[in-house]
Amino acid sequence: MKAVISVIGKDTVGILAKVSSKCADYGVNIDDVTQTVMQDIFTMIMLADVSNCKIDFNKFSDEMQSLGEEMGMKIHVMHEDIFNSMHRI
């Protein structure tokens, strides 16, 4: 199963490193990353394969959310189907 991990917030050092190492800890493989910084707002979208995730998807989602809170950013983990169904016919 593929999930979209989105990270939004003020740009600081090491965002990508922190998020990706947390993913690695749980066996989540990152397939693709795009990131932009616009007027100090950092936006990163990751497409990740969570089929080999070591913990339950809900727990992983909670873990990422609390990581976001520690970093002062917003992190969402959502199944890719919500975007596919909303934006593709």
Partner: peptide, 16 residues
């Protein structure tokens, strides 16, 4: 891959 703007649009709809 999915379009970044589409993803942000969805997140914005839910968040804000």
């Amino acid at each position: 891959m999915l379009n970044t703007n589409d993803i942000l649009e969805t997140i914005n709809m839910i968040e804000n």
